[in-house]
């Protein structure tokens, strides 16, 4: 029942206070190790030279852009099905972080693409899917911003997030189809079992570091969002000080 215990925002804030310093420390250590390994331990690529090191940022960022959306989808289920009070906060605060990682994946992808393809942008199936994902993140963020009532906005965004989650595989599939129709085989293949351990280890450490970074940012953002909502409630109360906070009823039979 630990999950439900932390439904209470106050208890959640206490937990964050305890966990956050440790998580931040772990994240810093992981980044130090990951960056050291990717810049000094990992070998140069015999074809791409130093540019291959962009991969150690690009691949974890791309991985996080997907993970972030999955977390939003699960949180949306939490909002709609289990009515967990923190689920909506979690989904809302994950969106900008996800958008940032997606943007990072796109930028590093195109920087990497310049020496590889000779141009910053290629309508490669992967890049295109990630671009669509970025648009979805930005659309969700706009939806949250345009609605005043956080509860309503949360429910609306949850519906859209889930519709998007159902559609993402379809989008991925269609973009792949579209791409193979218009282009020969993909220019690069990073996945696959043949990846060399010298590359794999730095990549894994960086992925762990990025994941930790996500959780640090997400917890911080959730804390801020909870506090922001409290401020909003206090302001609403201040505004309606003359008004009743709640109404009770009295009744007597007529006649």
């Amino acid at each position: 029942m630990a999950f439900w215990d932390y439904a209470n925002p106050t208890r959640f804030l206490k937990l964050v206070q305890v966990v956050l310093p440790w998580l931040t420390g772990l994240c810093v250590v992981a980044f130090a190790a990951g960056l050291y390994m990717s810049f000094f331990v990992a070998p140069e690529d015999y074809q791409q030279g130093q540019t291959v090191r962009i991969m150690y940022i690009h691949v974890p960022a791309a991985w996080l852009s997907m993970m972030c959306y999955s977390i939003m989808a699960v949180s949306s289920l939490g909002t709609l099905v289990w009515k967990h009070p923190l689920a909506d906060v979690s989904a809302k605060t994950a969106a900008p972080i996800g958008a940032a990682f997606t943007f990072m994946a796109l930028v590093t992808g195109s920087l990497w693409g310049k020496p590889m393809w000779g141009t910053y942008w290629v309508w490669d199936a992967r890049l295109t899917s990630v671009l669509v994902l970025l648009i979805m993140y930005l659309g969700l963020m706009t939806l949250w911003r345009t609605m005043d009532d956080p509860i309503k906005a949360g429910k609306a965004a949850a519906v859209l997030t889930l519709a998007g989650a159902l559609n993402l595989p379809v989008i991925k599939f269609s973009v792949d189809w579209w791409n193979t129709l218009h282009q020969p085989a993909s220019v690069m293949r990073l996945d696959g079992p043949t990846i060399h351990p010298d590359i794999l280890w730095p990549l894994l450490v960086m992925a762990v570091a990025f994941t930790l970074l996500f959780f640090v940012l997400h917890l911080m953002a959730m804390r801020n969002e909870i506090l922001r909502r409290r401020v909003r409630t206090l302001r609403l109360r201040a505004a309606s000080a003359a008004h009743p906070r709640s109404a009770v009823a009295t009744a007597q039979p007529a006649e």
Binding site: V132, I135, M136, L138, G139, L140, T142, L143, T146, L160, A163, G164, N167, V170, I171, F173, S174, V175, W177, W178
Partner: peptide, 16 residues
């Protein structure tokens, strides 16, 4: 906003 929200979901239809 409607158009922005819907366009990503409509991409597969357009492609096929």
């Amino acid at each position: 906003l409607l158009a922005v929200l819907v366009v990503p979901l409509a991409i597969p239809v357009l492609i096929f």
